[in-house]
């Protein structure tokens, strides 16, 4: 009897976990249906027509504060300016680190293979992230995988750190011009992550009770003090991005910035909620070309 007691308690506990623990109350913005393709913006903000073709932007709009948001900052993507900005330094640094790790004695090519490169070729790899990783047993973004694979080569590249993002910029730069392409419509872990991400994107949180969508879906083009919010479509293609204030900002660090600005407790880069939002936003960028190295103010 004495030995059975812990087992009984355990059974009772699991039974309770299964039946009780209703989801805590959360407020959600109305769940917009999004098309997991960049052209879906035509039924959200309609600004897509102005930045659809990166080679043919109307530069006059960039200088007009009322029109600027309609370009979705794409005028800061390549080839906006052949001169050197911080994003190019990052790409150089990332290239160095990449080759260092990929040429470890006795392990040549292992780093690239771990990242998912076929026969060491990085071309097109960025377009396929986030992806389901068998070794991690979950969907992961490129930066999480860089940290994971670098650790195998004995180097610490924390998710969100400069060097991690630099490698990410370098890897992405090998896909510049190639459209983002992740499948979030066939049943599987990516689709589930996309659906969860869409939900978190609409979840109100923090001290002033805002969701990502409160601004990025419902206030596009409106002024919040000095800034104007742009569409969530097409954003992921230019990350990690060079910004003077942050040196180099990964997508998850941008989420942290928006969380802090709206007084919401931030999560660590690579957390499941952030990765799900990343999958969601990557779905909304499907079809748009990888645009790295890029710069934002």
């Amino acid at each position: 009897m004495k030995r059975a007691l812990p087992l009984l308690l355990l059974l009772a506990a699991t039974a309770q976990a299964a039946t009780s623990a209703p989801a805590p109350y959360r407020q959600f913005d109305p769940m917009e249906d999004y098309l997991p393709h960049v052209k879906g913006d035509m039924s959200l903000s309609g600004s897509y027509k102005h930045w659809k073709d990166p080679a043919n932007l109307d530069w006059r709009m960039a200088g007009n504060p009322e029109e600027n948001w309609k370009l979705n900052w794409k005028f800061m993507d390549p080839p906006f300016n052949a001169s050197v900005h911080g994003g190019h330094f990052a790409a150089d640094r990332g290239e160095e680190i990449f080759h260092e790790l990929n040429r470890k004695a006795g392990r040549t090519g292992k780093f690239a293979t771990c990242l998912g490169a076929r026969k060491g070729n990085l071309k097109g790899l960025r377009s396929q992230y986030p992806m389901y990783r068998k070794d991690l047993r979950h969907v992961a973004g490129l930066e999480e995988v860089i940290e994971h694979c670098a650790a195998k080569e004995g180097r610490e590249l924390q998710n969100g750190s400069y060097d991690n993002s630099a490698v990410s910029v370098y890897v992405a730069s090998q896909s510049t011009g190639m459209p983002i392409k992740i499948n979030v419509t066939s049943a599987g872990p990516l689709k589930s992550a996309y659906e969860r991400g869409r939900k978190v994107f609409h979840a109100r949180a923090g001290r002033i009770n805002l969701a990502c969508s409160s601004c990025h879906t419902y206030q596009i083009g409106l002024h919040l003090r000095g800034t104007v919010v742009t569409t969530p479509y097409g954003d992921v293609a230019h990350y990690p991005v060079y910004r003077t204030r942050y040196q180099l900002q990964s997508l998850h660090l941008r989420f942290i910035e928006c969380n802090l600005a709206t007084r919401t407790q931030p999560l660590k880069p690579g957390s499941q909620a952030y990765t799900d939002i990343e999958v969601f936003l990557t779905g909304l960028t499907n079809g748009y070309p990888v645009s790295v190295p890029s710069e934002r103010d």
């Binding site: 640094r93 750190s161 400069y162 802090l260 007084r263």
Partner: peptide
């Protein structure tokens, strides 16, 4: 810059009392 570590510094206020996205 040029570091594999992400540094963390205290934010100007405590945001833990309100619900998060975790």
């Amino acid at each position: 810059v040029n570091s594999g570590k992400l540094e963390w510094v205290p934010f100007s206020r405590d945001l833990t009392p309100w619900v998060s996205l975790s």
